[in-house]
Simulated scan of single mutants.
Amino acid sequence: MKIERSIGNPAAAYAGAPDFDIELAWLQECTRTQGFELSREFWLRRAAFLDRLALREAESHGVEATAALIRFAESAASGLVVYDTAHHGLSPKGSDLVAGEDHRAYVREQYRAARLA
C-alpha cells in the first residue's frame, strides 16, 4: 500500500474532526460498554485522537518535550495497521509502512477517507 503524502498531511486529514473532549468521551464510552468489541472505527478514532494530541502538544511544547506522547501515538497507529493487516488484507511488509511516522501518515489517510465516505 502506498501512502499519498498529501493525504497524510494532518491539516487535510483532520479538518472538521471533533473537539478533543468529544472524541475522548466517545473513546471512553466505547471501552466502558459491556461486550464492546474493538472495531476498526475504534482503532482508527483512537489512533487519530492520539496523533492529533501529539501534533498539538509538539507544536506547543516542542518535539523533545512530547517524545513519549509521540511514541504513544505511533503505537496507537501501529495498532490500526495491525488491525487492518488482520482484517482487511493490508500488507505493512512493504517499504511504505515501516516506521512509526509512516503508521501515523496511514492513520491520517484512513481518517480522511473515512470522513469522506
Rank of each mutant, 00 (worst) to 15 (best):
G100P: 00
A86I: 06
A12F: 10
Q110P: 00
G94D: 10
A113L: 15
A76V: 01
V107A: 00
E4W: 12
D21N: 14
V82T: 10
L90Y: 06
A99H: 15
H103L: 05
A54E: 06
V107M: 02
S75V: 05
A48T: 04
G79P: 03
F42M: 04
E59Q: 13
A25D: 10
S39R: 01
D21Q: 13
R112I: 08
Q28T: 10
F42E: 00
A54I: 04
Q28C: 08
Y106V: 09
P18W: 04
V81S: 01
E37M: 11
G16W: 05
V63D: 12
A58E: 12
H103N: 08
T31G: 08
V98D: 11
A13P: 01
W43I: 02
T66Q: 10
F36A: 06
L50S: 06
R32L: 11
E41A: 09
Q110G: 04
A65C: 04
K93S: 15
E29T: 15
A114L: 07
R45V: 00
V81R: 01
A17W: 05
L55M: 14
F36W: 06
L44T: 03
E74C: 09
S39Y: 00
A77M: 03
L69W: 05
G79F: 03
R32S: 10
S91I: 06
Y111V: 03
E64H: 09
D102V: 04
Y14R: 05
V81A: 06
E64V: 12
